[in-house]
Design a binder for these strands. Structure first.
Length: 323
DNA sequence: CAAAGCGCCCGCCAGC
DNA sequence: CGGCTGGCGGGCGCTT
C-alpha cells in the first residue's frame, strides 16, 4: 500500500456527473469524518473527477483531484453511477486498471459495479449490485459470479455492494479489515447504524440469512438464531461451529469484535424488539420466547442496549394494539 | 438491594 | 519454526 506522506491510508472516490449525492457522501462520511482517538491516523479521502467541477444534480462540486490521483490511492471507490448504463469515462476505466495493478483495493457501490466491470475487474469474481440491475451486470460480465441476494460481495481486492444503504455496510467492512472489528463497531455506533447487518438485499428481516463474510462462523450463527429461545450459550455455539469454546471466542473477537455471550444477548434483545413491535404477548412470555431466563434479565439487557424499557418500547413502536 | 455462586473471557502454554 | 488450536486456571462481572 502506498499511503500518504503522513502514513494515512488514502481513499480515492470517483465523482461523475449525475451521481446520486448520497452515494458519494457515504464513503466521505465513513472515511472522511475525523474520529480522534478511534481512527488514528485518519483516512485521507480524495474526491477525484474528470474536470475541475462535477455536477451532482443538486449542486456543483469543485474538486482538486483528477483520475490520475486515483492510481496512487490505497482504496478506490466508485459510487453509484447516474444510471446503470451511464457512460464511464475512459480515463476513469484506465485509472481503475492501473490502480488495481498497483495493488489498490477497488470498490464499487451500487451501480458503481458497472464501472469495475468495464475495467474487467469483475471477471472470475463474486460481485453484486442493486437488485434491479443484477441481470444487466451478469450479462455484461459473463465470467463474474453475480449474487443478487447479498449486501456486498468480493474478495480481498475487488468488492461491490448492493443498493444505497448497503454501501454503508461495505464501507464499514473496509474499516473492519483496516482497523479491526472493534474499531469498525465503534464507528458504526457513532454513526448510529448497525455494525454488522446480516441478510441479503431481498430480505426484510435480519435473522433469516447468514452473513456474507466469515463463512466459517455463518452456519453456527444461523443455527443460534433458530434456537434463541433455548438455553444456548458459548458451549452450544462452539459445538455448532465444530470448534472449541476457546477458538470460538477468538473467532468472535476477530471477525465480529464481540464475545459469544454478548452476541447472543444482543440477538435476544433484537428478537425482543421484533416481538414487542409485532405482538402483544405479556412480557413474561416474551422474555421466554427470546431466550431470557427471566423478565428481569431481559429488562436489564434491553434497557442497557436499546436505551428504553421494553414497556416503553412497545408503547412507541407497537402496532397500537397494546392497552 | 446485597451477597454468594458461577459462567464467561482471556492470558498462558503445550501440541500439532 | 510460525501459526492455529484447545485445555487450564484465575479473576471478574453477571445472575439469582
Amino acid at each position: 500500500m502506498r499511503g500518504s506522506p503522513s502514513g494515512a491510508l488514502v481513499i480515492g472516490v470517483a465523482a461523475l456527473p449525475g451521481m446520486p449525492l448520497f452515494e458519494v457522501a457515504v464513503p466521505c462520511e465513513v472515511f472522511g469524518t475525523p474520529r480522534p482517538g478511534l481512527v488514528e491516523p485518519p483516512y485521507d479521502v480524495r474526491l477525484c473527477s474528470e474536470d475541475q467541477s462535477v455536477d451532482l444534480g443538486l449542486g456543483t462540486l469543485r474538486l482538486d483531484h483528477r483520475w490520475t490521483d486515483l492510481v496512487n490511492a490505497d482504496t478506490v471507490i466508485v459510487p453509484a453511477l447516474a444510471g446503470w448504463d451511464a457512460p464511464v469515462p475512459s480515463g476513469l476505466v484506465e485509472a481503475l486498471r492501473r490502480a488495481y495493478e498497483r495493488g489498490a483495493r477497488i470498490v464499487g457501490l451500487c451501480t458503481g459495479a458497472f464501472a469495475l466491470g468495464e475495467a474487467g475487474l469483475l471477471d472470475g469474481r463474486d460481485a453484486t449490485t442493486h437488485w434491479m440491475y443484477t441481470q444487466q451486470l451478469a450479462e455484461r460480465n459473463p465470467s463474474a459470479r453475480v449474487d443478487r441476494d447479498v449486501l456486498w460481495a468480493g474478495d480481498e481486492q475487488v468488492l461491490t455492494s448492493a443498493g444505497t444503504a448497503s454501501g454503508l455496510d461495505l464501507c464499514l467492512e473496509l474499516v473492519r479489515r483496516d482497523r479491526g472489528a472493534a474499531v469498525a463497531n465503534d464507528v458504526a455506533r457513532r454513526m448510529v447504524t448497525a455494525p454488522h447487518r446480516t441478510g441479503g438485499q431481498s430480505q426484510f428481516v435480519a435473522w433469516s440469512s447468514p452473513p456474507t463474510h466469515d463463512r466459517g462462523l455463518a452456519p453456527a450463527l444461523d443455527w443460534a438464531l433458530e434456537h434463541l429461545q433455548e438455553e444456548i450459550g458459548p458451549q452450544q455455539l462452539a459445538a455448532a461451529a465444530h470448534v472449541s469454546v476457546r477458538t470460538l471466542s477468538r473467532r468472535f473477537r476477530d471477525s465480529l469484535g464481540t464475545t459469544p455471550a454478548d452476541w447472543i444477548v444482543e440477538q435476544r434483545v433484537r428478537r425482543c424488539q421484533e416481538l414487542l413491535e409485532t405482538t402483544t404477548f405479556p412480557l413474561t412470555q416474551l422474555a421466554a420466547m427470546a431466550g431470557f431466563s427471566s423478565p428481569s434479565t431481559m429488562r436489564s439487557h434491553f434497557t442497557r442496549l436499546v436505551g428504553t424499557s421494553p414497556r416503553d418500547y412497545r408503547r412507541t413502536f407497537g402496532d397500537g394494539q397494546t392497552r
